[in-house]
Simulated assay, not measured.
Amino acid sequence: MTETREKTPLESVSATTSATEVEEAVKRPIWIDTDLAVGMKRYSRPGFSDVDDGYAVLQLMKSDKVEIVGISAVFGNTRIDDAYRISNYMNEEFASSKIPVYKGAGEAINLSKIETNEAVEALAVALRKQKMRIMAVGPATNVGLLLLLYPELSSQIEEVVLVAGRRKHTDYFSIGNQGNQAKDLNFDLDNDAFRIMFENKVPVTLCPFEISNLVWVKEQDLNALAKADKGSQWLAENSRPWLAQWISQGADGFNPFDVLASHYMISPEDIISEPLNARLEIHIDDTIKGNEKDTFKQYLICDKGEGYPIKYCYQVVPEFHQKLIASFVE
């Protein structure tokens, strides 16, 4: 009796299919690591939390080019319990509960006391089965913990795509025209996680403020989303307070930071990048007004100097905005 086995996705494609068609037919496996905070009010100060993670996750859920193997929540834009709850909500409401969701780190890596969590263990299991790319759009804590506990799995990570970095420490993350400068939050909340990725020689792609600052979501875009499906409607509704917050700072829209990472995962041809080297440097904290060298912080600097080789995304194609909105409304 001849034993039969299930065909792999590649074997299921016709032998007459072209290489390009094969690539398009096979969904690339990815893992999402996110600090979702859509609709959340801030805990530490007045106002609302970022909504851009929601755009990144929903765009990937809508794409027919990727297979989301799992979603892991991490602290960052909000507390871990909130990020985990919203991750489950998006999976249930917009992905028919088909994606496993795991609770990850609630604080930065403590090098003197390394503790795992269910997200790290689930990611380890998934990587043992297959190579994957990871979109980590919150602090990279879960990825860092994985590499500390299971360094042998570093070769299974094809690429980690993150939202962080700048060319010079004087490249400010300016929000509006009121003199407010934002943190490089994902990096600032866990410097060690980035250092660990570099030391384990994981392929890293950065989508920094430099590129996200070129892309704007405005009132007319939210109006278009509000006429689409329920996922886009949910984003539009929860984005209006966030948009109002940016307008109060002198902007006429907001930068959807994390969606540059998700768009890169789906259509890298729409993102222009260059090879640079990344390293950690200490400089005066640029987010504190009137800082007289009382407070310093780490910066993730990317240039042609010494450091770990990374891919640095810095520009989008001319038709990017149309493509971005179309990915949510068509």
Rank of each mutant, 00 (worst) to 15 (best):
I80M: 10
I80G: 07
I80E: 12
I80A: 09
D81Y: 14
D81R: 10
D81L: 07
D81P: 05
D81H: 15
D81I: 02
D82A: 12
D82T: 06
D82W: 11
A83L: 02
A83N: 06
A83G: 10
Y84F: 14
Y84A: 00
Y84T: 00
Y84S: 02
Y84V: 00
R85P: 01
R85S: 06
I86Q: 06
I86V: 13
I86P: 10
S87H: 06
N88P: 05
N88I: 02
N88V: 01
Y89S: 03
Y89D: 03
Y89T: 04
M90I: 01
M90N: 02
M90C: 01
N91E: 09
N91F: 09
E92K: 11
E92L: 04
E92R: 11
E92C: 03
E93R: 15
E93D: 05
E93I: 01
E93Q: 15
E93V: 03
F94K: 11
F94H: 14
F94R: 13
A95W: 13
A95L: 07
S96R: 13
S96I: 00
S96T: 03
S97W: 03
S97V: 00
S97C: 03
K98Y: 08
K98G: 03
I99D: 13
I99V: 15
I99G: 12
I99T: 13
P100G: 11
P100N: 12
P100T: 11
P100C: 11
P100Y: 13
V101E: 07
V101P: 10
V101Q: 10
V101G: 05
V101T: 10
Y102I: 00
Y102S: 05
Y102A: 05
K103G: 04
K103L: 09
K103V: 01
K103C: 11
G104P: 04
G104Q: 07
A105G: 06
G106L: 11
G106V: 04
G106E: 09
G106H: 12
E107Q: 11
E107K: 12
E107N: 07
A108D: 09
A108Q: 14
A108T: 07
A108K: 15
I109T: 07
I109H: 08
N110I: 02
N110K: 08
N110V: 04
L111S: 01
L111P: 00
L111Q: 01
S112V: 00
S112G: 09
S112I: 00
S112M: 02
K113E: 05
K113Y: 02
K113N: 11
K113D: 09
I114W: 08
I114L: 15
E115T: 12
T116L: 14
T116S: 15
T116H: 15
